[in-house]
C-alpha cells in the first residue's frame, strides 16, 4: 500500500536575503511559518509546488516540507525544519531574532 500523504508546506530560501520563506494560501512568501498554507492533499501539494518552483526570481530551491497541524499553524515534524524556522542555536540570530521586531 502506498504511504499515506502527510501534510506539508512549501518552503524555500529568498533570492536576495537567502532566508527561509514559506508560501501562504494567497501566494505570498512569508517569513512566518504560522502563516503558511498547510497542504493536506497530495495532488494539490504537487500543483502548488510546481507553481512555487516557477517563481525563480523570488526564491531558490522550493520544496515540500513535512508539517503537522496545530492551533496556531503548521508545526515542523523534523528537527531540520524546526531549526530553519528558528535560526542557529549558538547565536540569537536569524528568525528567532527577527520575530521580536514584528
Amino acid at each position: 500500500m502506498p504511504r499515506a500523504f502527510t501534510p506539508k508546506v512549501i518552503t524555500a530560501n529568498a533570492l536576495l536575503e537567502g532566508d527561509v520563506v514559506y508560501l501562504t494560501a494567497d501566494d505570498i512568501w512569508t517569513r512566518d511559518l504560522d502563516a503558511a498554507e498547510l497542504l493536506e492533499d497530495e495532488a494539490h501539494a504537487q500543483l502548488r509546488l510546481i507553481e512555487a518552483q516557477a517563481r525563480v526570481h523570488e526564491v531558490v530551491g522550493a520544496y515540500l516540507a513535512d508539517m503537522k497541524p496545530s492551533p496556531h499553524g503548521p508545526e515542523p515534524t523534523h528537527f531540520r525544519e524546526e531549526f530553519r524556522r528558528t535560526g542557529p542555536s549558538n547565536y540569537f540570530h536569524g528568525k528567532q531574532a527577527e520575530k521580536n521586531h514584528v
Partner: peptide
C-alpha cells in the same frame, strides 16, 4: 566565487 546558499542565509 565561493557563494553558497545555506540553511538560513547565503
Amino acid at each position: 566565487n565561493g557563494l553558497y546558499l545555506q540553511l538560513h542565509a547565503y
